[in-house]
């Protein structure tokens, strides 16, 4: 099971790096989204996978059953997803603003602030 997840994470990272290196800002954002998902999946997998045992304590008992899923990575992922979501929304609006101001979304033209005067 872990091996499938490992391959999936690898593929997601590869896709994200490929997209991050493209010239279009929209593809850059897509790359960031893939990066965020790959990282969340990595976090999930490294916490250990357990099939069919959600992180709940049965009614009437005080101790969890042995071998239930670790709830902490899930909480971490939820936090990471929320943060990622906020930032992606921000980045999309930023790109839209930039596009409406300059009429381009070519990253090679985003170099005004780096120019030597």
């Amino acid at each position: 099971m872990e091996i499938i997840f490992a391959i999936a994470i690898g593929v997601l990272y590869a896709v994200s790096v490929y997209l991050l290196l493209r010239r279009s800002i929209v593809k850059l954002i897509l790359g960031i989204m893939f990066l965020s998902n790959a990282t969340n999946l990595l976090l999930f997998t490294s916490g250990g996978l357990s099939k069919g045992k959600p992180a709940f304590i049965e009614k009437g008992s005080n101790v969890p059953e042995p071998g239930i899923a670790d709830p902490l990575p899930q909480a971490l992922i939820l936090t990471a997803i929320v943060i990622g979501f906020g930032i992606i929304a921000f980045t999309l609006v930023l790109t839209y603003k930039y596009y409406s101001k300059t009429g381009t979304e070519d990253l090679d033209k985003v170099q005004e602030t780096d120019q030597f005067e």
Partner: peptide, 13 residues
């Protein structure tokens, strides 16, 4: 609040 802010600013734009 934050979801409505995000979407309303995009929709107004």
């Amino acid at each position: 609040g934050s979801l409505l802010t995000i979407t309303s600013s995009i929709m107004e734009e």
